[in-house]
């Protein structure tokens, strides 16, 4: 078989929706695109632990504390599944982690915003996880097998995240005036960054066509964003809160909500390192990694020693 034959066989599989598996032939760019996308996704889960982790020690009840711990832990698990999926493509986790720590790799810009009140934990669950789920559900049918399987596992666990977030806000919205104010304040701050999570508009997203062709992406950024807005408006009404967009209104003709312009200048600044918490987040990750180095080394050294001792014991016995 020639490269061309391989390419044809690959294209045919994609067209027939047959999953591509690690040892199958794949174009180099497909591999690279996947590594970039999956590792970015993994980094987002890991960095995403920080803004919420912030509130573990301050959660307002033991039940909320346990739920938040379990949720942040799930994110670690999701990061782990995704790193594992990327590892099947021929990159080590250490290499990916290094790319994150050096600032070379990106992660979701949303996690560069601060969590300043307890309502933010609710807003992250409802809006941020809600936006993420839109993307993730679509990715359960992505063309690369290990990625799709990781997403199925993640989606199963993720549904509790959005529910717990919404439940926090619902509970608060039935509370005191101050609590309602806190909810509205959180929605005001998280709404626009949540919309930015879907990425630049389709006109401004040069890789989308290729990714759609490869079924690495199943819907465009704008399609997913619109779908998110359409479902969220209703959910917001139930909370008795408002979304901070005066231009938001139902468009009968399109069958969708119209919405106001997104501040892309802010988006690109946050992506490029100027968000309110970019530096802190990266520092926290770097610190954890560096402070953990001696621990990782120790475990490995102990394992080596033990193997050696077992071998020596074997030789002696023989």
């Amino acid at each position: 078989m020639t490269v061309r034959d391989f390419q044809e066989a690959f294209d045919e599989k994609i067209d027939k929706e047959i999953a591509i598996e690690p040892r199958d032939w794949m174009p180099d760019n497909y591999r690279k695109t996947l590594i970039r996308q999956i590792s970015q996704h993994a980094h987002s889960e890991i960095v995403g632990m920080l803004p919420e982790g912030n509130w573990i020690t301050r959660a307002p009840s033991l039940r909320r504390k346990a739920v938040l711990l379990a949720k942040v832990q799930d994110e670690a698990g999701h990061g782990l599944y995704l790193y594992s999926a990327a590892e099947t493509l021929g990159i080590t986790r250490d290499e990916m982690v290094e790319q994150l720590h050096s600032g070379k790799a990106k992660y979701s810009s949303i996690f560069n915003y601060p969590t300043t009140t307890w309502a933010d934990i609710g807003a992250i669950g409802w809006l941020v996880d809600g936006a993420a789920i839109m993307n993730q559900v679509a990715l359960c049918r992505t063309s690369y097998g290990p990625y799709a399987r990781a997403m199925v596992r993640i989606c199963k666990e993720e549904s509790f995240h959005q529910r717990q977030g919404y439940e926090i806000l619902l509970h608060m919205s039935k509370g005191t005036e101050i609590q309602r104010k806190m909810v509205q304040d959180a929605i005001d701050r998280w709404w626009w960054p949540s919309l930015m999570m879907f990425g630049p508009t389709d006109d401004d997203s040069p890789n989308t066509a290729q990714s759609m062709r490869w079924r690495v992406k199943r819907f465009t950024n704008d399609e997913l964003r619109q779908r998110f807005i359409d479902v969220t408006v209703e959910q917001c009404k139930i909370l008795g809160m408002e979304l901070p967009d005066p231009e938001l209104k139902w468009n009968e003709e399109r069958g969708h909500f119209d919405y106001g312009p997104i501040d892309w200048e802010e988006f690109w600044n946050v992506v490029n390192g100027n968000g309110p918490c970019n530096r802190e987040r990266l520092k926290a990750r770097n610190d954890a990694w560096e402070k953990g180095a001696w621990v990782r080394d120790a475990a490995l050294a102990y394992s080596e020693k033990r193997k050696k001792r077992a071998k020596e014991a074997d030789t002696k016995a023989a």
Partner: peptide, 18 residues
Amino acid sequence: GEWCGHGPVLEQDIALTN
């Protein structure tokens, strides 16, 4: 719980949180 998100390796972060 203070360790959550700051462990030396992902797998142990998860273990300690459990």
